[in-house]
Measured scan of single mutants.
Amino acid sequence: VTLFVALYDYEARTEDDLSAHKGEKFQILNSSEGDWWEARSLTTGETGYIPSNYVAPV
């Protein structure tokens, strides 16, 4: 399991995006899409895309 933590708040801009709150942890499901990674929030269980530069490894 690849875990990352949000460094900043991010507000989803499309229905495919996933909002993130600073300190929230995510499981990365797919990081092969360049700057946008598919992730699952460990807080809400929701999945979507987050900007890779907004997260760091735990």
Rank of each mutant, 00 (worst) to 15 (best):
D17A: 13
T47A: 06
D9V: 04
V58C: 12
L29Q: 04
F4I: 07
Y10L: 06
K25G: 05
F4R: 04
D35Q: 09
A56W: 09
N53E: 10
Y10D: 02
R40L: 10
S52D: 03
L7E: 05
D35W: 09
A6E: 05
S52T: 06
D17L: 08
L7H: 02
G23N: 04
T2C: 15
R40Q: 08
I50S: 01
W37D: 00
K25R: 12
T43W: 13
G48D: 00
A56N: 04
K22M: 09
D9H: 05
V5F: 10
K22Y: 05
L18R: 01
E46L: 14
L42W: 05
A12D: 02
E33Y: 11
V55A: 03
G23K: 01
A6Y: 03
D9S: 06
A12Y: 02
A6Q: 02
A39S: 01
I50A: 01
T43Y: 08
T14H: 14
P51L: 06
P51M: 06
V55Y: 02
L3R: 04
S31H: 11
K25W: 15
N30K: 08
Q27N: 05
T43I: 10
A20S: 05
S31C: 15
I28R: 02
Q27L: 14
L42I: 10
E15C: 15
F4D: 03
I28V: 08
G34L: 10
E15T: 12
P57V: 08
I50F: 03
F26S: 00
K25F: 15
E38C: 15
G34I: 10
A6V: 07
R40W: 05
Q27T: 09
S31R: 13
P51I: 03
L18S: 01
V5G: 02
A20K: 01
R13Q: 14
D9E: 07
K22G: 03
A39T: 00
E11H: 10
F26I: 06
D35C: 14
A39C: 08
V55F: 14
I50T: 02
L42G: 01
V1D: 14
G34Q: 11
T43E: 14
R13V: 13
L18N: 01
A12G: 10
L42H: 04
L3G: 05
E38P: 06
F26D: 00
A6D: 05
D9Q: 04
W36A: 06
W37T: 02
E46I: 10
E11T: 11
T2D: 13
